[in-house]
Write a protein that binds this DNA or RNA. Structure first.
Lengths: 229, 229
DNA sequence: GGGTAACTTCTTGCATGCATCAAACCTACG
DNA sequence: CGTAGGTTTGATGCATGCAAGAAGTTACCC
């Protein structure tokens, strides 16, 4: 009946909210473990106060998401996405966000339009006050609003997987992209919203793809510049 | 149930070839278990002569791939993709294959071009001899050749996930699409290859998207027609 | 001194036992 | 006759034990 008190007490100190999968994902994405670092099951099991079995399952999921690499009979390691894979992911990002914008434009006037307009206004404020953290957050919201607004659950699903794989690098990349491209990025967002308001699917797709492509190039340049980090 | 004995026989004759995950995936995609059917861990464990643990792991992977649904503390069930999800997946397919064609066109003259040309010739022969099984196989190869030829591993990965989710329906859909659209489909394939040979990324993308879209529409009509199956 | 082979250690991979919980069933009562 | 409530069943979720394999280490031979 109540012999589990010792487990519960310790579990509360670490915070017991969120699934183990999410906690492990955050652990990997946080960069606390550098790319290539091993993630032994037993260590994680003790860390999160569960047995190896659920840890194992979660790690397999993370492998499926491309965040870790499991070498059979050897161990699990934080995955190191190659430069090439980053480029590949950005190509996918452009395509998927282009589709999202196109689909959203087709849906006509929906509440997303208002959200996007307010997002741009907030972005301009953040840019004027040089609040780059807030700005990065708004950019993130802008893109997700469009993807979610596509009303295509499978697109959202695949986009989420993709962004997870980019998440680790986004921290680095955004840092580099932010200062230089803030103004241009806002203009590009505006042109996307313009096309959306005109219910112009093709225009919205092209504007979105142009924007993602420009951001990607800037990010790639930034990654090259800060490669020694 | 004779299906059970049949399974048992296959499991024994097949031995331990191929991973458990692949075997379970095939089991689900084969349609042997109808959508909504339960997949008890213990049953599968006995069937494939392993313990519940690896079965469990494989089922979680399949859930991640969208092929089964795991209801906590209840069980695992063959997933029923809704009509809407099928449409969503086809929209994604159009976008991803468009990207693939675009990337392949950028790569210039590669061996894939020869493969695609030969594929079209073979398709024409299959069409003339009304060999619809061979034709379906060639269509499958055509699309995968382009996606693999994109030289973008992440695109290949996402495309694979997508096609897995469509695989169950492809059987039905191709059956319907095949007779009516063979000729048109071959022409569309040819125009894709033409654009690829001219190293025209935009043309290749548009041709590919047009083709996928036409196929999707035909498939959707077919699915409506054969909805009572 | 260098290289190889056996060994030690640490990890995963799988099997099994037990507790938990959802759902079906059965009974009793209105 | 229908329904509410308790009970049984059967499946999952997790913990643990054990075996197999891969690195790293040491000792030995050339």
């Amino acid at each position: 009946m109540q012999e589990v008190t010792q487990l519960r007490k310790d579990a509360q100190t670490n915070g017991h909210q969120g699934s183990l999968l999410e906690k492990l994902r955050k652990l990997v994405l946080s960069g606390e473990f550098p790319p290539g670092a091993p993630l032994p099951e037993l260590f994680l099991a003790e860390e999160f106060e569960v047995s190896r079995t659920p840890v194992r399952e979660a790690l397999k999921q993370l492998e499926n998401e491309g965040l870790v690499e499991i070498r059979p009979k050897v161990g699990t390691f934080v995955r190191i996405p190659t430069r090439r894979e980053i480029v590949e992911l950005f190509q996918l990002k452009e395509s998927l966000e282009g589709l999202a914008a196109s689909l959203l434009a087709r849906r006509g006037p929906v509440q997303e339009m208002e959200i996007l307009k307010r997002n741009i206004e907030a972005s301009e404020r953040a840019e004027r006050s040089a609040d780059s953290a807030r700005y990065a957050e708004l950019v993130h919201e802008f893109h997700w609003t469009i993807v979610n607004g596509s009303d295509n659950s499978k697109l959202v699903e695949h986009y989420g997987r993709l962004m997870n794989q980019l998440a680790y690098h986004r921290i680095v990349l955004e840092t580099v992209e932010r200062p230089a491209r803030m103004r241009a990025s806002i203009r590009e967002h505006q042109s996307v919203v313009d096309a959306l308001l005109e219910k112009d699917p093709l225009g919205a797709e092209l504007a979105m793809r142009g924007h993602v492509n420009a951001s990607s190039l800037a990010a790639a340049r930034g990654a090259d510049a800060g490669a020694e980090a």
